[in-house]
Design a binder for these strands. Sequence first.
DNA 1: GCGACAG
DNA 2: ATCTTGTCGC
Length: 226
Amino acid sequence: MKIPRPPHNWRIGYRQAVVVQKKLALQVRETSLEVEPRFAAGIDAAYSKDGSKCIAGVVLWDLKTMDDIEHHTAVTEVGFPYIPGLLTFREGQAMLAALRNLKNRPDILLFDGQGIAHPRGIGIASHIGVITGMPSVGCAKSRLVGSFVMPGEKKRSKSPLLYRKERVGTVLRTRDHVKPVFVSIGHLIDLDAAEKLVLDCAIKYRLPEPIRLAHQLVALEKAEGS
DNA sequence: GCGACAG
DNA sequence: ATCTTGTCGC
């Protein structure tokens, strides 16, 4: 599938990365979904044993038949250290490459990380959403920024994630008695639709199936390439 | 100045 | 993320 080239270089310094984020953050849009999504692409990444390469995986999930339509991986050289708030500069390049391998166009992108629940309002889900111009959602396993009260123990219990007096996401319980996930809009979607997508995909486990499968995919790729 | 800190 | 097996709890 056709994916635009990033409007910036991936191998840049910390200072420049922050400048890039501030610029792209102005393009993030919260809107209602055009149509009900049917195909969601789950994206995740892993690293080669020596940590020199980033392995990204994408799984195109059919929300209707609850099936894996197609999946691919892509590998790139890691050219940026892990710095909270700058994760995109470590995995973004590989993720875009993996998305280019898709034959079918997803209705929406689901990321293992934050959307706008980020210091500068542009976590990996929002960043890739802006570059691709596609609707996207962030579903992180832990908090980056913001405060909240722990939601109830039952599935679907939730509480708002607040940051600087603003609502940036939802702490959502996807299964009874399991740690909640942190959902935030990425781009071109609203929080209600983002929450619904995550719940609709979290059928058997805590994480949405597309993300869980993408995680297994890169884990296998990692094992082979060693 | 002291913590917090996606993956 | 990654190093790693069994084990306690719903």
